[in-house]
């Protein structure tokens, strides 16, 4: 019983269901942001270098 009252610190942090849900939402938000940022940087690169960047040099 004493082990229930004082969790073993080696088991790390225990999350509540709400915290787990928020962590999942945070991860999704970070993933979406990184994906959009990558797409934006790709578009910026194409605009800055021009469409010629995709053509092989003669």
């Amino acid at each position: 019983m004493s082990a229930m009252a004082e969790p073993d610190p080696r088991q790390g942090v225990r999350l509540t269901p709400q915290q787990e849900r928020n962590r999942r939402l945070r991860n999704i938000a970070i993933g979406v942001c990184i994906g959009l940022l990558a797409a934006l940087f790709y578009a910026v690169t194409i605009v800055k270098l021009g469409p010629g960047v995709l053509r092989p040099e003669p």
Partner: peptide, 26 residues
């Protein structure tokens, strides 16, 4: 071993740091 358990238990000290969702960060 993972530092974060999936078991729904009473949060330990420090678990409060995982409380916020995207809305709060926004």
């Amino acid at each position: 071993m993972s530092l974060v358990s999936r078991e729904p238990m009473t949060p330990t000290a420090g678990a409060v740091e995982y409380a916020a969702g995207p809305r709060e960060y926004f």
